[in-house]
Amino acid sequence: MLEMDDVRLEREGFSLSANVSISGPGVTAVIGPSGGGKSSLLALIAGFVAPDAGRIVWNGADLTGLIPGERPVSMLFQDNNLFPHLDCLTNVALGAEPVAKPSLETRERALVALDKVGLKGLERRTPGALSGGQQSRVALARLLLTKRPVILMDEPFSALGPSQRREMLDLVRELLPEATLLMVTHDPEDAQDAAQTVLVADGIVSPPEDTTSLFANPPAVLESYLR
């Protein structure tokens, strides 16, 4: 259970308030108009931004004061998910231990993870030599090694086409069944795959709702966004 207790973020010309709890495992979609605060919400949970008030709690443990690397949280960014100067194996291995030279055991696990995402034999390639879909798979393989219970995805796989994206999301669900996933998306269809949806609009994070009923009965902000 990820809880945000009266979290407030104030920036010049922008504010965000969140008082929600998100239960896992499974995918929670985060939707809403641009500039509404979706990315800020993820940055708060990941620890890139410190809230001005409130607490962020995971299963009873307060995360608010922790730096990103210490949180039980992994993040898939829109881009720059992989270090372009490192090969796939090293990129994946960084998920297990943040060191320059991974241990033999970590390398073995990285190979297994690459195999699971269907990239067997490509471990020596650098990201530049891979297609967009393959790059996403490398990042996913790294998530498998990180083993953190919360996974944030900021418009993941947005560089991919719709069917490839759907394929990646299915793979994420299949390989990370225990994880609590938060996925920011612009695509209502992606959101409809998620069991529950959080609407972020006008600087307010609404509590998660059942996705089907939310879309069947959209509030005004969502309706104008969808139209």
């Binding site: 990103p68 210490e70 949280v73 720059n80 270090f83 100067h85 960084l94 943040p98």
Partner: peptide, 25 residues
Amino acid sequence: TAYGPLADSLGLTGFARLRVLILPR
């Protein structure tokens, strides 16, 4: 700017961050 958030979320700090992120870039 480009890779700091990734390094942060991976917990890359200190000398490892220098070797993995900064020096190669």
